[in-house]
């Protein structure tokens, strides 16, 4: 599928609108337009499904753009926030924050603290992975170091969980399962502003990202300030991953598999197109996963990471067998 960019966008947007409608009205309780103006249906619609659907769109889109940025920065199609440990870094920082300051009852202070911790954790891991990628020319080495680092951060997180009090532990475990259904409309407002602002900023980097596809030396010769670009990519990726992880917990595979799928489907290297396609496809993927979770479960909610992994892993396996560029 390599039609004109406008047609591609309309197809993706159309799919997203259909899924958004289905997500809002179909689930364990089927709603109609006439019902949502009052009573329980109104609560389900406005307080549960609407924030959940918008969160899924923004989290899916945001993580896909973060993944695309990481793949371009490291020039590695297997880079992604979850695989390279950026989500784990955010997770560990949130675990530390929750265990140390778990007593904070003020809603805004609590959310701000978690967001700050998640962004800081993501930023530190991004810097570490960048440091490793400068030392090693091998994509596979960078990938394996990222995976190992992710395991180390997971183990550290385990130690913190082990020594924490039961109340903090419970809230952290629920957060760590990854979900788009724990956000309120107040949370959604923050996520909308931050994610859309960062994605729009990324669009302005399209030309520089196009140059970076060749390599850093060529980008520099094409007039790109590579050091400034690298810092911008790291900050945007860390903020996107951090803020989404803070509100939804670590979401697996969307950041890795969606940009790969987008490249396979739309067959363009232009980064402006890929940013838009990845955002829309990421939003579509996570919303689809959420719809499936919602439709499959009546008394319990299936963890969204189960589905993102089920959908994302085959994409990565396919790439490993097909790619000529990983060596």
């Amino acid at each position: 599928m390599a039609k004109s960019p406008l047609i591609n966008c309309f197809v993706l947007l159309g799919g997203l609108v259909v899924l958004f409608y289905l997500n809002l009205f179909y689930g364990s309780t089927v709603l109609t337009w006439s019902e949502v103006s009052s009573g329980t249906a109104r609560t389900i619609f406005f307080d549960i499904r609407l924030p959940k659907s918008i969160t899924a769109i923004l989290a899916g889109g945001g993580l896909a753009v973060a993944g695309l940025l990481m793949q371009t920065l490291f020039r590695n199609p297997l880079a992604g926030p979850y695989v390279l440990g950026v989500s784990s870094g955010a997770g560990l920082a949130v675990a530390i924050a929750m265990m140390l300051f778990g007593g904070i009852t003020d809603y805004l202070a609590g959310k701000s603290l978690i967001s700050f911790a998640a962004i800081s954790g993501a930023l530190l891991v991004m810097l570490f992975v960048l440091f490793i990628s400068k030392r090693s020319k091998s994509n596979i080495t960078v990938l394996l170091v990222g995976v190992m680092f992710s395991q180390i951060l997971g183990a550290a997180q385990g130690i913190i969980e082990y020594v924490s009090n039961p109340a903090s532990l419970k809230s952290f475990i629920v957060w760590g399962m990854g979900s788009v259904s724990n956000t309120t409309m107040s949370d959604v407002k923050i996520v909308i502003i931050v994610v859309l602002l960062l994605v729009v900023c990324t669009l302005f980097l399209s030309k520089s990202l196009n140059a970076l596809l060749l390599n850093e030396a060529y980008a520099q010769n094409l007039g790109i300030n590579v050091n400034r670009l690298r810092i911008l990519i790291i900050v945007i990726t860390a903020c996107l991953t951090g803020i989404i992880t803070a509100f939804c917990g670590p979401i697996a595979f969307v950041g890795l598999s969606v940009p790969i799928a987008s490249r396979l489907i739309f067959k363009t290297s232009h980064q402006l197109h890929q940013i838009i396609y990845s955002f829309l496809l990421g939003a579509f993927t996570l919303l689809l996963c959420d719809c499936i979770c919602q439709w499959l479960s009546s008394n319990y909610l299936l963890p969204i990471n189960t589905l993102t992994t089920l959908i994302g892993s085959p994409v990565v396996i396919y790439l490993l067998f097909k790619s000529k560029t990983l060596s």
């Binding site: 199609p77 390599n215 010769n221 490249r263 290297s269 000529k324």
Partner: peptide, 15 residues
């Protein structure tokens, strides 16, 4: 100044 380097370019759907 334009330059042609020895570094290899690959991947990302580049035509």
């Amino acid at each position: 100044v334009a330059v042609v380097l020895t570094d290899k370019i690959s991947g990302f759907n580049l035509t």
